[in-house]
Design a protein around this nucleic acid. Sequence first.
DNA 1: CCATCTACTAGACCATCGATCCGGTCACTC
DNA 2: GAGTGACCGGATCGATGGTCTAGTAGATGG
Lengths: 209, 209
Amino acid sequence: MWSRPRKAPRQTLTLERIVAEALALLDEEGVGRLTMRRLAERLGTGSTTLYWHVATKDDVLDLALDAVFGEVRLPDPAPGEGDWRRPARELMRGWRAALLRHPWSAALLDRPLMGPNALSRTEFLYQTLAGAGFTPPKAAAHSLANYVMGSVIMQVAWERGGDGDTGAFLRERAARYPALAEHGLGHTWDATFDEGLGYLLDGMEQARR
Amino acid sequence: MWSRPRKAPRQTLTLERIVAEALALLDEEGVGRLTMRRLAERLGTGSTTLYWHVATKDDVLDLALDAVFGEVRLPDPAPGEGDWRRPARELMRGWRAALLRHPWSAALLDRPLMGPNALSRTEFLYQTLAGAGFTPPKAAAHSLANYVMGSVIMQVAWERGGDGDTGAFLRERAARYPALAEHGLGHTWDATFDEGLGYLLDGMEQARR
DNA sequence: CCATCTACTAGACCATCGATCCGGTCACTC
DNA sequence: GAGTGACCGGATCGATGGTCTAGTAGATGG
């Protein structure tokens, strides 16, 4: 998608309008109900027309996902080596928040993130970590990105699956899964995320010295 | 899926055979090509027959995913409090390896993992962490699970996307993404995973004391 | 040996999907 | 004012997940 050149549009139906409407449709009805026909209908056009602007439905999803990454605000860069955890933490929190605002994005994370917005956030992360002394910063950057993606996917999966049923399900099987039934219920997602992020950042800081 | 009762089969076409064949089909052709018709054909039956054993295609995928988790060997439990990192590391490595042996599983992680195999692995993780003094162990367990899931998803996504094209793509844009172009290429997935896992485990050990 | 019930199988079918074919329409250029 | 290329869409194709309906095989009871 990102490697193909753009053609000059006549501005009646633009890629931007398509992406904006796709985002709205995804937010309202989820990824399963995004259809080229439905998207075209919302845009007041025929489904075929979309294929002039876009090669495949996957392109629409790629664009929509990158638009989500575009919502992530870049933190202020770290002034010195010691402050790297603040911008890293801010970026990861913003990254997570953007994905959670659009829960359908969790189902799309199994594709290469090569959109400009995703790349610029990753670039910022690499620069922050490289500036902090991680040479090379790849493992550190991957750790953080993996953690964020994994936590978003898990949270979305469990919230969509219905936590009420899950609780009853686990309590019924408390004999087989005692630790899970005792500690696994009652999610406080934000605090859990921050705690785990703290583990990771602290472990990285320890290795950095 | 897991809450519904099983009916007594006559053993000509069993759920086990369906799952085994689904796994083979997924391994050979990927998740996009798993069709109820194709699966039925491989089993020498009609597509409708599958729906007697299974309510929907999602059930097949749930079962197949849990079968992957079934491949993960449980480590020996930690003898004392201090040794918790060994079983935790072993479990996470095994978890990751099983998912990577079946790359299609990465696309299925956006659903609740409530199969018996997944649950028993999670239970082991909770017990290991609770025994190490993490009370409650939820955040610690989530951190590790999130990290593994995220790293598998990212690796599968980039390997499927074709690393060769990605390299050229990033090199062309080295001006815009200098740190990424310099450090982001040439993946050594296993080492990167272990390094990040070490960060996480060390940070957790630090917090535990 | 027959009837019957239940586990199980399948062909035809439905609505819907992503994508394409082919024929248009509109605005701008020479 | 003819032509060119950007843009649009109705009809259609092949395929999909899932259902309806009509069965068949084999154990069970008498």
